[in-house]
């Protein structure tokens, strides 16, 4: 039960972070100057947007929530479940951000979600050429790309 609660929390916080950041950035102007001084101005602009800061807090909650989730659930359940965030993001974009989502984009999002689930869920840990057992970096990195953290050691103990 707690596992599913944490999955729900992770997905909700991750998607809320995306939606808040998108909302915060789209309310201001379009960033277009990326010269040396433009990059500094763009970074200052990004870190002073209230909604973006709130989104960052949501990302931080996602980080710790996924960390806790991985301490009680197998990697092969935790990460594919959080891939549902792609679908939640798209639903949020449609109904909260009022984006028009053509059918091709829905189909694409579903393909991406299925693909992410397959890339994470399939295959046990492999051995490196030197014979050292290791969590494949492709899987560890997939975890970290979802959460923003590396969980190599935590995951190694499970595989």
């Amino acid at each position: 039960m707690m596992q599913w609660g944490l999955i729900l929390l992770t997905v909700c916080c991750s998607s809320s972070g995306d939606i808040l950041c998108a909302r915060g950035m789209s309310k201001g102007g379009e960033l277009s100057d990326f010269g040396p001084s433009g990059i500094v101005r763009a970074i200052r602009y990004i870190i002073t947007r209230r909604l973006v800061i709130l989104g960052g807090l949501c990302y931080a909650t996602t980080f710790f929530s996924l960390l806790t989730l991985l301490s009680i659930a197998p990697l092969s359940i935790a990460v594919p479940a959080t891939a549902l965030g792609f679908v939640v993001d798209t639903i949020g974009a449609r109904f909260l951000l009022r984006e028009r989502v053509p059918w091709k984009r829905w189909a694409g999002v579903l393909c991406v979600t299925a693909g992410v689930i397959l890339t994470v869920k399939t295959g046990p840990a492999t051995n490196l050429p030197n014979g050292k057992p290791a969590l494949p970096a492709s899987r560890a990195a997939t975890v970290s790309s979802v959460s923003g953290l590396h969980l190599g050691h935590a995951a190694k103990t499970r595989h």
């Binding site: 960033l31 277009s32 694409g108 393909c111 299925a114 693909g115």
Partner: peptide, 28 residues
């Protein structure tokens, strides 16, 4: 899975980058 992701991205890339107006002026 990689093939599915690639197909998904290709489908999304066929759609417009923006479907609602975004302010054009540079805020910085």
């Amino acid at each position: 899975g990689v093939l599915l992701i690639t197909c998904g991205v290709a489908l999304v890339a066929e759609t417009p980058v923006a479907t609602r107006p975004h302010p054009r002026e540079n805020p910085a």
